[in-house]
């Protein structure tokens, strides 16, 4: 039996009838066409599918779409506003925090949550905050640098911070 799921994704409302077994990540990719959220594993290790659900970082492969009923979601597509990159995106670009780019949306979303919780993290706190995300290309060196750099930018311009969880255009 299908169930109704009504969500707000990146500020836009959506309503669909879905099978209960539909994973949230498949809902985003296949039903909403938001293919920026990636799938890198079957067991909740890699974090490529990380999105924000009511402001909290969640692995969207380990949640059913029906569980998102009534929730507000932000995906990687919701981070840049009006053609302007989010400071975390800008920092990943500036610091060469990505190579193949496949894990990147998940890292950016995990970093957004991390910096929301802890705006001035130490290097160790950044590494720990990203423990739920795997990258094969970068050796994490420049990812950590990117998050450090984003933290600096965001604390210098607090207005930027609000965009992390506002989830709307």
């Amino acid at each position: 039996m299908k169930h109704k799921v009504a969500t707000t994704v990146n500020g836009r409302q959506h309503e669909h009838e879905v099978e209960p077994r539909l994973l949230l990540v498949h809902y985003l990719r296949d039903n909403l066409g938001l293919t920026g959220t990636h799938i890198g594993c079957d067991t909740s290790q890699c974090g490529a599918c990380t999105i924000l659900v009511d402001g909290k970082a969640v692995k969207s492969c380990t949640m059913f779409a029906v569980q998102a009923e009534g929730r507000s979601l932000v995906t990687i597509e919701g981070m840049a506003k009006g053609g302007e990159l989010h400071p975390i995106q800008q920092a990943f670009w500036d610091e060469h925090g990505l190579q193949c780019g496949y894990c990147t949306p998940g890292f950016i979303m995990a970093a957004a949550y991390l910096l929301e919780q802890n705006p001035n993290p130490t290097e160790d706190e950044i590494r720990k905050g990203l423990e739920g995300n795997l990258c094969r290309c970068t050796g994490y060196v420049n990812i950590v640098k990117a998050v450090q750099s984003a933290a600096k930018t965001m604390s210098a311009t607090p207005a930027k911070k609000a965009t992390v969880t506002a989830g709307g255009n």
């Binding site: 909740s44 970082a57 949550y113 991390l114 905050g129 739920g132």
Partner: peptide, 9 residues
Amino acid sequence: VGDNQVRNM
């Protein structure tokens, strides 16, 4: 337990 994302759920 787990990681940030896991701890949120």
